[in-house]
Amino acid sequence: MKRFITYLGIFVVFSCKAQQTIYPLLTDTSNLPNNSYVKDLDNEYDSFVGTWKSNLNDKIITLKITKIIQKPLQKLDVSYYSDVLIVQYSIQDNNGNLIENNISSNLNDYKIISTLYSKKAHVVKLYYQGGQCQVGWGGINLKMIDSTHLKWNYQPESTVITNKNCSDYPAGGIKINLPYEPADIVFTKQ
Rank of each mutant, 00 (worst) to 15 (best):
T62A: 06
Y110S: 04
Y154C: 01
Y81P: 01
K75P: 00
D83R: 12
D46W: 10
I68M: 10
D42N: 15
L107K: 08
H149T: 12
N141G: 14
H122Q: 11
L150S: 15
S118C: 15
T29W: 01
L56S: 10
K119R: 11
I91M: 03
M144L: 11
K39P: 08
K53A: 10
V49C: 08
Y89D: 07
D109W: 06
G136S: 13
L126M: 06
N141S: 15
P72A: 10
K119Y: 04
V135H: 00
K75R: 04
Y154V: 00
I65G: 00
K64N: 08
Y154H: 01
P72M: 09
N57F: 14
V84L: 14
I103S: 03
V84C: 15
Y128D: 05
Q134Y: 09
S79F: 06
Y154E: 00
Q155H: 01
V38T: 06
K151Y: 14
D46V: 08
K67Y: 11
I140T: 03
K143C: 08
L56K: 11
Y127P: 01
L56Q: 12
Y81Q: 05
V84Y: 09
H149D: 12
Y128I: 05
Q155N: 02
S79T: 08
K119Q: 12
K120C: 07
D77P: 03
Y110K: 08
N57H: 14
I145T: 09
H149W: 15
Q155T: 01
Y128L: 07
D58Q: 10
L142M: 13
N101W: 09
L76W: 15
V135I: 08
N141Y: 14
I61K: 02
V38C: 07
L56F: 11
S82D: 05
E44G: 06
I69L: 14
I91L: 02
V38I: 11
Y127V: 03
Y110T: 05
D58F: 08
K64I: 05
S147D: 11
K71R: 15
D77T: 06
G138C: 03
K59R: 15
I103R: 01
K67P: 08
K59C: 10
V49F: 10
I91A: 01
Y37F: 12
K39H: 09
I68E: 07
D93W: 13
Q134A: 08
N35Y: 14
S105D: 15
N108P: 12
G96C: 03
L73D: 02
Y89W: 15
Y81W: 07
V78I: 13
I68Y: 06
Q132V: 02
D109I: 06
N108L: 14
Y89L: 12
I91T: 03
I140A: 03
I112E: 11
E44M: 08
N34I: 09
K39S: 09
G139N: 15
L126R: 00
S104R: 03
Q70V: 08
Q155L: 02
T148Q: 14
D77S: 07
Q132D: 04
T115F: 00
N141V: 12
I140N: 00
V135M: 03
L98S: 04
T115S: 03
T51W: 13
W52V: 01
L85N: 08
L73P: 02
Y80K: 01
T66F: 12
D77Q: 06
N101S: 10
Y37M: 07
D146Y: 11
T148D: 13
I113N: 02
N153E: 06
Y37E: 04
T62V: 07
